[in-house]
């Protein structure tokens, strides 16, 4: 019996990789990396991989199977052990230099994967604002709730229907289309604290990342929270805020990446949503810290 060692090695590496994926799925840490949609696709790929690995292991230990011998024969006919036309070396052949390189890179990535400490992205991944401190004084007064557009105040009816479905993302997507639906609404939202430089002292931005596929496309979306105790919370601390949505100052909030995301931000008529906090509670970092598309 001959052992097809390059093939066996490839198989072993893929098996390790499947193990890594399984570990992520079982521990639930996969939600710190990819969206549920992608996680499902990853599950499917794990099943496919396991199905593929069975013949790989069997054939790498057994003496040539029929198909392989045919293939090997063709390779010999062309006088090449390493390459057929495909532009890559076949598993049953000897390992080429580039293949060794890609196998070792795969091994290195696996090591990086296994040594990964599950942490959620924090405020360090939010681009900083350029126009910070110098203009903050000029606009800090307009952040006062009393100076909020009176028309907005008149419209504001406290619809006391806190819905779990409301998140920074859903408001960000729909605020411009129907501000009346949100202004004056009582909501409770979770997120981490972000203090960008130049933001008035009584504000912080309650931020969460919106992840569509994987955290490489994580987009920070936040809502400004107004509270007298804003400064007592440090960056990246997870808090749960209950409050009423009001119209905040467009000029200030448009300067920061998480709050500039709201649709219709360029219209001067409409401010950006701001949460006037009734209560701010520190909470532990949730198991699924990101927002995903439904």
């Amino acid at each position: 019996m001959a052992v097809d060692s390059p093939k066996l090695l490839k198989g072993l590496l893929l098996f390790l990789f499947t193990g890594f994926l399984l570990r992520l799925q079982v521990s639930g840490h996969i939600s710190l990396l990819v969206s549920p949609m992608i996680a499902t696709i990853v599950k499917l790929s794990m099943i496919l991989l396991l199905i593929l690995l069975i013949p790989v292991f069997i054939s790498s230990f057994s003496i040539r199977t029929e198909g392989q011998s045919a293939h090997q024969h063709e390779l010999h006919v062309h006088g090449q052990h390493e390459h057929c036309d495909c532009g890559h070396d076949h598993a049953s052949a000897q390992l080429s230099g580039s293949s060794k390189f890609s196998l070792s890179l795969f091994f290195a990535s696996l090591m990086i994967g296994f040594s990964w400490q599950p942490v959620a992205l924090g405020s360090s991944m939010i681009p900083q604002s350029t126009t910070g401190v110098s203009t903050s004084k000029a606009v800090s007064t307009s952040a006062d709730p009393t100076s909020v557009n009176p028309a907005v105040n008149a419209n504001a009816q406290v619809v006391d229907q806190p819905e779990g479905a409301d998140s920074q993302a859903s408001i960000a997507m729909r605020f411009a289309a129907s501000p009346d639906q949100y202004l004056g609404k009582q909501v409770t939202m979770d997120g981490f604290v972000f203090h960008p430089s130049g933001l008035p002292d009584d504000l912080f931005i309650l931020t969460r990342y919106f992840v569509f596929c994987c955290i490489a496309d994580a987009t920070p979306i936040g809502i400004a929270v107004q509270t007298q105790v804003a400064q007592t919370f440090k960056n990246d601390a997870w808090v749960s805020v209950s409050g009423v949505i009001q119209s905040g100052d467009l000029q200030i909030l448009n300067r920061y990446a998480p709050t500039a995301w709201y649709q219709g931000q360029k219209s001067s008529q409409l401010g950006l949503p701001e949460l006037i906090a009734n209560s701010v509670k520190v909470i532990p970092t949730p198991a699924a810290p990101y927002m995903f598309p439904r």
């Binding site: 198989g11 593929l52 013949p55 890559h88 598993a91 580039s98 390189f101 890179l105």
Partner: peptide, 30 residues
């Protein structure tokens, strides 16, 4: 004239997937 059984085909497909996968994965990692 080369007749290949289904099992043989399956084994060839897995071989091909392996090669294709490892032909790409190095670049993907980089």
């Amino acid at each position: 004239h080369v007749h290949i059984s289904l099992a043989g085909r399956f084994s060839r497909i897995t071989d091909h997937i392996l090669s294709e996968l490892f032909g790409i994965i190095g670049f993907l990692i980089c």
